[in-house]
């Protein structure tokens, strides 16, 4: 951790207009929860739809995408990353610091609101809300690491990330069972299943597989991002 890198990253992330989109996510989730509560539908079914499909399935990856790419891709894009890199700082330290900021922000903006929305909708019964929250914490961290890596790898990180989240996870993942094994969202869901009372949350991917893949993706993406960052090339005049 480097406090200067953390401070610059956090200010860059929240100091721009991006913060409005980011704040819209928790607000949306809470508004939906309040409305749903008064709809009189089955509470468990509602919890699955709002916490599972909407929050874990859509809002967590979108927040992870905006935050994960936002902590580094913007600086690479406009060239100001030079001021971080032209320093005797180990590259892995820059990456892990930015990752900590990204994970913290993703949790704050998606996992915490998910927990609050869950309490409003369903309360603490059957550990369903706790399960979804832990799932969101785990997948939020994995998304942050994955999308931070994308930000280092490509100038089109947001598009690549959207393609992964929308096409792979949401579209292909909902039809092809094999694709679900390689889906961050499903790993989060596996944790939710493991924590919630038996039979309340169903996940297609086994807990062991999910845990291993979460660790591999988190650690692997961070290590690879560090390697790529130390070989970052400035585009020339040519």
């Amino acid at each position: 951790m480097n406090t200067t890198v953390a401070r610059l990253t956090a200010r860059g992330l929240f100091g721009r207009r991006r913060v409005l989109i980011l704040l819209a996510v928790p607000v949306l989730l809470l508004v939906v929860s309040v409305l749903a509560r008064s709809s009189g539908l089955d509470e468990l079914d509602l919890a699955h739809r709002v916490l599972g499909t909407l929050a874990l399935g859509t809002l967590v990856p979108i927040t992870g995408l905006i935050v994960g790419t936002g902590v580094i891709a913007t600086e690479i894009e406009d060239g100001s990353i030079v001021y971080l890199l032209a320093k005797p700082l180990p590259r892995w330290k820059i990456v892990t610091t930015k990752l900590v900021v990204a994970v913290g922000s993703t949790w704050l903006l998606s996992a915490v609101p998910l927990y609050v929305a869950g309490l409003l909708l369903y309360g603490t019964g059957d550990r369903v809300v706790l399960g979804y929250t832990v799932g969101a914490l785990a997948s939020g961290a994995a998304y942050s690491a994955l999308f931070l890596l994308l930000g280092v790898l490509t100038r089109h990180a947001v598009i690549a990330g959207l393609a992964y989240a929308l096409i792979w996870e949401s579209l292909i993942g909902s039809y092809v069972e094999g694709a679900q094994t390689l889906s961050v969202q499903q790993w989060g869901l596996s944790l939710a299943e493991a924590i919630a009372a038996d039979g309340t949350v169903i996940a297609p991917v086994g807990l062991g597989t999910a845990l291993w893949l979460l660790v591999i993706v988190g650690v692997g993406a961070t290590a690879y991002a560090s390697v790529k960052l130390s070989g970052l090339t400035l585009s020339g005049e040519e």
Binding site: L8, R11, G12, G15, R16, D78, G79, S80, V82, Y83, L85, A86, K87, P88, L89, P90, R91, S230, G231, L234
Partner: peptide, 21 residues
């Protein structure tokens, strides 16, 4: 790939962007 050289080197890049905030 040797970040230790930056103890000796000061770089003034051509690009202008520099954390406007």
């Amino acid at each position: 790939r040797n970040q230790e050289v930056y103890r000796e080197i000061g770089l003034v890049p051509e690009k202008e962007s520099m954390y406007d905030y």
